[in-house]
Design a protein around this nucleic acid. Structure first.
Lengths: 338, 338
DNA sequence: ATGAAAGCGCTAACAG
DNA sequence: CTGTTAGCGCTTTCAT
């Protein structure tokens, strides 16, 4: 009964000013006489007044909350991005509602609807593709969305990412130059945009430039998990491939350990390049050679971009520089390649 | 301009009923004639009406949002718990505002204040201790809090966890029986409750039952990270210890690799037991022997408990069974012990 | 079973 | 610089 009883009205009464004035000082509006401001501030402190963000949200139509949809928090790649997002969000006084989509289209649609209902000011979407219904949801909503750490089938949405095609091409070239035999590409779904339009293209380019033929059978699809990589290691080895570029670090680690357990020596008999440079790439033995990405920054920049979009009028939202921001990637040679 | 223009009022008007009735059907209140319900539902679908959760929150004083404070999302242990929390939360139609505290007291206090301002219905706190100011914040707020995956200095708060003392004791005993030499304990801060009151006690008990002396120098403090474990490996080896039980898997992996890189053979010359059974323990070579914990369940049960607390009247919140729920832990022997 | 009306706590013109 | 006054969109008695 004694809860949240102190409202802006209580403060106004106690300080002998109007609610508007209290609101002004709370929101740092300069149009308040220092004297009054002090008086109000004193009362606020004395009463331990805390503005109710829900009421504020209803009145202002801004919740200072953003929605973040993530396929799986326990995936180190996404978790690192999430950390970057949260850091910048909290810097800008935003909170983040984090929702796992389990990389499932239906669940993603459902969680986004939930986020919209909660009136989030913006959404950061992590995931490799956006189902049609969700696209409509996005485009009909006015809520800014940025795609972090991937690309999707929706070209309208701004993305923050690295150049997946180029990264893949580099990795494959590196492998082709050092391996006497076929080089495999291990990715999630062949049909997802990031793979179909970028990684597989990069793969083909590298092959072509080296004068090698493209062989569909050398592309392996997996779910992003250590167990999956481990399980498929046998099949990958059996394909005759002597090296692989793997798009998920967990899978790369699974592949490495699976190969090793089956008696295939890495890097002597099989070389591996991972692609996210998460901590797991350092933990394995041998350590995984990997494409490096500024994981934290990918998240941080996404959130930064989102704040811009949230604060820009709808009109100028359309124009501006290219929607995509491409961060630099790198390459770190470790022990899984020669 | 055409945004969110459809409100409960629009629906009411269009369906020729009152807002109250619309509210009733939206909230599944049975007191609505099937006929009217259908009419309203039709209009809702036709207009694509979506209730505004913020307005609802203001009116009902319930946001169906819970706050989750986590030291670091990129720590696999906490991330697994967070997944369990989110799954159950979404099952109960709750959302989770996730905030990183960076294991820092000031930041924790600040984020919790932010969560309170957002009127979360409950809070799940992950972290090893609660600074005094935060305790007051909690106790003066009426917002239910549950501590997940740890214990704190605040005995008032319900916790969901394993028996850290017993787990530690088992691990140490196991080591003592197999090692000819001192056994170290590698933990976070010696002063945190989980270590001081549980793990170190378990350590001492195991020592005592084996007739060994306790030596403070065999307790090592680290931050929870792979790099820290790696760095301290030298010091740990130099201490003369021949085995260690490590409270964080990342640290355990770092210790393992550090030792290996320094030429110390695991498990032949040094044995290690990790304690969270995160994926990391499977990725290292040798694989880490570890205490096993139902990580996902720890989170899931915490959230489940929180829903109970959120729905119980304040009166009966006090009574009820013991506040703590202790989940079973296990032990899995792998390759870092003999 | 349904409606009328009073807020929930705050922001945002608008006036002065 | 400060106060007045409408709402924001929904829930919730209280009548009927």
């Amino acid at each position: 009964m004694e809860k949240q009883s102190v409202t802006i009205y209580t403060v106004a009464r106690e300080a002998r000013v109007s609610m508007a004035t209290v609101s002004r000082v709370v929101n740092g509006n300069p149009n308040v006489k220092p004297e009054t401001r002090k008086k109000v501030l004193d009362v606020i402190k004395q009463l331990n007044y805390r503005p109710n963000a829900v009421a504020r949200g209803l009145a202002s139509k801004k919740t200072t909350t953003v929605g973040v949809v993530i396929p799986d928090v326990t995936n180190a790649y996404f978790a690192e991005l999430a950390l970057g997002i949260d850091d910048i969000a909290s810097m800008y006084k935003y909170n983040m509602i984090l929702t796992n989509s389990d990389a499932d289209d239906r669940k993603a649609l459902q969680v986004v609807r939930g986020l919209m209902a909660k009136q989030v000011d913006g959404i950061i979407f992590m995931g490799h593709d956006i189902p049609e219904e969700l696209r409509q949801e996005f485009s009909s909503s006015n809520v800014p969305v940025v795609v972090a750490g991937s690309v999707t089938n929706d070209d309208e949405l701004p993305t923050v990412r690295i150049d997946y095609q180029e990264a893949t091409k580099q990795a494959i070239k590196y492998l082709i130059e050092r391996v006497d035999g076929p080089v495999a590409l291990v990715v999630g779904s062949k049909d997802s945009t990031i793979n179909k339009r970028y990684r597989i293209e990069g793969y083909k380019q590298a092959l072509q430039e080296a004068g090698k033929d493209f062989d569909e059978k050398l592309i392996f699809e997996t779910h992003d998990s250590y167990a999956e990589g481990y399980k498929q290691s046998q099949a990958i080895a059996d394909s005759g491939a002597k090296a692989a570029f793997v798009s998920d670090d967990g899978v790369a680690a699974g592949l490495l350990n699976g190969l090793t357990d089956h008696g295939v020596k890495v890097p002597d008999e099989f070389q591996i390049i991972a692609s996210n440079n998460t901590k797991t790439t350092e933990i394995t033995r041998p350590k995984l050679t990997t494409i490096t990405q500024p994981l934290y920054d990918l998240g941080a920049v996404s959130m930064r971009l989102l704040t811009k979009l949230m604060n820009s009028k709808d009109e100028d939202k359309e124009d501006g520089e290219s929607k995509d921001v491409i961060l630099e990637h790198g390459f770190e040679k470790r022990q899984s390649t020669r």
